[in-house]
Nucleic acid binder design. Sequence first.
DNA 1: CTATAATTTCACTAATTACTGAAAATTCTG
DNA 2: CAGAATTTTCAGTAATTAGTGAAATTATAG
Lengths: 195, 195
Amino acid sequence: MNLTPLVQSFVLHFGEMGSRWGINRTVGQIYALLIATERPLNADEIADALALSRSNVSMGLKELSSWSLVRLQHLPGDRREYFSAPDDVWAIFRTLAEERRKREVDPTLTMLRDALLAAPGNEADRFAQERMRAMHELIELVTGWFTDVQRLDEPTLKQLMKLGATVGKFLEFKEKLTLGAGGNRKRAAHPASEP
Amino acid sequence: MNLTPLVQSFVLHFGEMGSRWGINRTVGQIYALLIATERPLNADEIADALALSRSNVSMGLKELSSWSLVRLQHLPGDRREYFSAPDDVWAIFRTLAEERRKREVDPTLTMLRDALLAAPGNEADRFAQERMRAMHELIELVTGWFTDVQRLDEPTLKQLMKLGATVGKFLEFKEKLTLGAGGNRKRAAHPASEP
DNA sequence: CTATAATTTCACTAATTACTGAAAATTCTG
DNA sequence: CAGAATTTTCAGTAATTAGTGAAATTATAG
C-alpha cells in the first residue's frame, strides 16, 4: 500500500509526537494509520505501508491492544487479523485518559498515601508530607472530577466544554445565594453520584 | 545532604514516573527534591543529595527552567544560585499543562489545520480528513475549555472539580428549560470571555 | 584587571530503548 | 492430524538518549 501525502504527514507527525509521550514512534505511526484509514488493516498491510518489519508491527499492535485502543476483527474468508481504531475520537480520548490514569496516576496516589501514613521523623519530613498532602488532594480532585465527567454522553460533554469558565460564574452566583440571603436552594451534591 | 526515607521514596518514585512522560529520570528526581524541600537548594546540594554529577544537575535545572517550573533566587552573601519549586501545587499543575499544550498540542493543531486546508485527492484522503476534522474539533474544544478554566482562582477551581458530573445535570436542566417552555432565561456565553 | 568561584558546554561513554530476522508457537484448513 | 498460514517471541544489533568529567565560559570579589 502506498500512502497519500496527506496521510503520510499525519502518520509522521504522530510518530514524532508519540515519542514525546511514553509511546514510541512506531506505535504512534501505526495508530495514526489506523485512525486515518477507513477499512481495517492487517499487520502485513501496516508493515508494508509504514516500511516496518512484520515483528515490529506485531509488537506495536500488542502495545496498542494493551491500551485498549484498537479493535480486532476478522474478515470473512480471511484468516488474518484486521485492526481498526474506534471511529469516535472522544472514545479514543477517554480511553487514553483512563489508561494513563491507571498507569501513571494511580501508582503515584498509592505512593503518596503510604508516605502520608508514616509518622514524620523530623521537620524536613513534616514539610515534605505537607507538600505531598496538597499534591494528593489535587490529584484526587482532578481524577475524581474526570471519572465523573467521563460518564457524560458526548453531546453533554461538548456543551460543557463550550461553557468554559462560565461555569465559574455560575458557581460564584450560587455562592452569593448561599452566603447572602439566609436561605439556599438545592445544594450541590458530592461527586460520584448515580447515573 | 542526606535524604530521609520519606523524601527518598518520593524522589525515586518521581524519577521512575518522569521517564514515562517525556521527562527523564534525573529531571524528575531533581524536581521531586525541590518540591519536598522547604528551603531553596543550590546545584551542588542537589548533586550531592541525589548522587548525580554536577553537570547533569546543571542540565536538569536548565530543562526545568525551560518548563518554567523552578524559581531561581540568590541568598545574601552567597554567589551560588538557589532553586525552588512553587509552593502551590495548583500553580505547578497549571504550568505543566500550559507547557505541554505549547509543545505537544499546538504543533498538532497546526498540522491538522494544514491538512484540512488541502483538497482531498481521493476517497482515502476524504476519509482521513474527516477524522482529522473531528480530532481538530475535539482538541480545540478541550484546550479552549482548559485555558478558560485556568483563569479561575483556586477556590473556585476546587469547587468546580468537586461538582463533578453535577454540572452535567445542570446542563440537562438548562436544556429542558430552553427546549421545553418557549422562553429561556440567561443564555450561556461562549468561551473566552472577559475575566 | 586578576584570581577565584560558579556554571555551562561538549565530546565521550554508559545505559536504555527500538527494531529486525530467524525460529518457535499458534491457529486454522482440509 | 498433517501441513500451511499467521502471529509471536526473542536474541542480537542498531539507534537513541542519559550521564560524566574535563575544559571553556561567565560572573563576582578584591
